[in-house]
Simulated scan of single mutants.
Amino acid sequence: MKTKVNLGIDVLFNKIYRVKEKKNLAVVCGGFSNEKVISGQSADVVIQSLKGSDYNIFKVWIDENQWSLLHEDQTLPIDKNDFSASTKDGKLNFDGVFNTIHGTPGENGILQGYFDLLKIPYNNCGVYASSITFNKGACNRLLRHFGVKSANSYLLKSDETYSEEKILERVGLPCFVKPNASGSSLGISRVNDAPELKAAIDHAFIEDDLVIIEEFLPGTEITCGVVERDGKPKALAVTEIVVEKEFFDYEAKYHHKGTQEITPARISKEDYEACMRLTEQIYTWLDCQGIVRADYILNEKGIFLIEVNTTPGLSSASLVPQMAVYAGYTLEEFFSEEVELLLNRH
């Protein structure tokens, strides 16, 4: 007959064994930008999808003020020295990280460098691919060397004196003004008349110290998600974006009922396949990992790259989950495969 002490040891042993049997995964969200709300929604979708998986799932919030584990109605501080947390059951270490932070520090390589130093594997691109794709101007210039088309543009620093006339000579009207390093279409304006340009530039500088002004490209807006499977990039689907507003801004993406996201895109079979293959090539050229989405304009002159997103939105209103379902995945299957890849990648 077992004593209470023996029974207590058995319970403790079983508890430790179960924790060791299941790997601990931190789903990291938040960030330092205005995209933290979307990041939190993305994390919730991932966590909900992985509830029945073979992992212990924990939500970690990172912002300018705190790094916290949100666990059992408690907010516990994260020790940045080793990315751990102290719980009532002892020290909690993580076997891997599923990063859903849009913007800095999760999309621009900063957090990736931190996890690399700690040798904690994560789901998305490494430092190089994250930092280069976060800089829209630099990324598009790099990809032009591979023959990827993109709009004519003008790059502007916040402390730089500029001539509105010279800008418009290069990009023409209408044009788009956007933060060079931001997502979810925050800070973007369409400029139809020259007097509107300065206000649009000032608006973009609220989000970033570097602003890119791009020529307007008429055509169909399309986007393509891509992941890694069997060691190779695999495009998921091409989605067509149709908006009632002038362009696909934050409001149109997440709140406007007139926005249509049509999968598969209503384009020719040849253009559809060309977009899929181009997205896979970009994934390879930039040495990407994890889930990536590339946005384009399609017109009679070809496929023009808008930008590459290495931490795309995964909320219920986001594009990649829709593409994954169209490609034949359940979200549980889709995210579970990503977790398996990240745990075996590093």
Rank of each mutant, 00 (worst) to 15 (best):
V171D: 00
T310R: 01
E333S: 10
K232D: 13
R141F: 06
V211T: 06
R141A: 13
F58M: 06
E64P: 01
L319D: 03
N81A: 14
G172P: 11
C139G: 13
L117Q: 11
I16P: 00
D89G: 04
F94S: 11
K149M: 10
E21R: 12
I9Q: 14
E300A: 15
I120H: 03
D10N: 11
S68F: 06
H256V: 06
A181P: 09
N81S: 15
K80L: 15
E64C: 07
K15G: 00
N93F: 06
L7E: 05
L118A: 09
Q281K: 15
I101P: 00
I110A: 10
K59N: 05
L111S: 06
Q260L: 11
T279A: 07
N123A: 12
N152A: 14
A200Q: 07
S315E: 10
I267H: 01
I78L: 09
F13L: 13
V171R: 11
D10F: 04
K23V: 12
H71K: 14
N192P: 01
Y162H: 08
S153T: 02
V127L: 11
E207Y: 15
G8W: 00
R170C: 12
A194V: 13
N124C: 06
K4N: 13
L236A: 09
L70S: 01
E228N: 11
S153P: 00
E207I: 03
A199M: 11
K91I: 07
V60K: 07
Q66K: 14
N108D: 15
E207N: 08
